[in-house]
Simulated scan of single mutants.
Amino acid sequence: MKKTILSLALTAVFGLTATANPIDGEKKEVKTDESTVTWKAYKVGGSHTGTIALKSGSLEFDGEELTGGEFVVDMTTINTTDLEGEYKQKLDGHLNSDDFFATASNPNASLSFTKVRAGEDNTYEVTGNLTIKGITKPITFDVSIDGSKATATLKVDRTKYDVTYKSGIIGTAKDKLIYDEFDLVVDLQL
Rank of each mutant, 00 (worst) to 15 (best):
K2M: 10
K3H: 07
T4D: 11
I5M: 05
L6Y: 12
L6S: 06
S7L: 15
L8T: 12
A9I: 13
A12R: 00
L16F: 14
L16M: 12
T17R: 09
T19S: 07
A20K: 10
I23C: 14
K28W: 03
E29N: 11
E29F: 03
V30K: 00
D33G: 02
D33T: 13
D33N: 13
S35A: 09
T36G: 02
T36S: 11
W39E: 01
W39T: 02
A41S: 14
A41D: 02
A41C: 07
V44G: 09
G46L: 08
G46K: 09
S47C: 06
T49F: 00
G50P: 03
G50Y: 00
I52R: 00
A53L: 00
L54K: 03
K55N: 15
S56P: 01
S56H: 00
G57P: 01
E60R: 08
E60Y: 08
D62M: 04
L66N: 01
L66Q: 02
G69A: 11
G69P: 02
F71H: 10
V73K: 00
D74F: 11
T76W: 04
T76N: 15
T76H: 10
I78Y: 04
I78C: 01
N79W: 01
N79Q: 13
T80L: 05
L83C: 09
L83E: 13
E86T: 13
Y87D: 15
K88E: 13
Q89M: 09
D92F: 04
D92Q: 09
G93F: 11
N96S: 15
N96F: 01
D99C: 02
F101N: 02
A102L: 06
N106C: 07
P107G: 08
A109N: 03
S112Y: 04
F113W: 08
F113V: 10
F113Q: 04
A118Y: 02
D121Q: 11
D121T: 08
N122H: 08
T123P: 10
T123G: 11
N129P: 05
L130N: 08
I132M: 11
K133F: 06
G134R: 14
T136S: 14
T136K: 06
I139C: 06
I139E: 11
T140V: 06
V143A: 14
I145R: 03
D146L: 02
D146C: 05
K149S: 11
A152E: 03
K155Q: 11
K155T: 14
T159D: 12
D162P: 03
V163W: 10
V163Y: 08
S167A: 09
S167Y: 10
T172C: 03
K174G: 12
K176P: 07
I178Q: 06
Y179C: 04
D180L: 06
V185C: 00
V186F: 03
V186W: 05
D187T: 13
D187A: 11
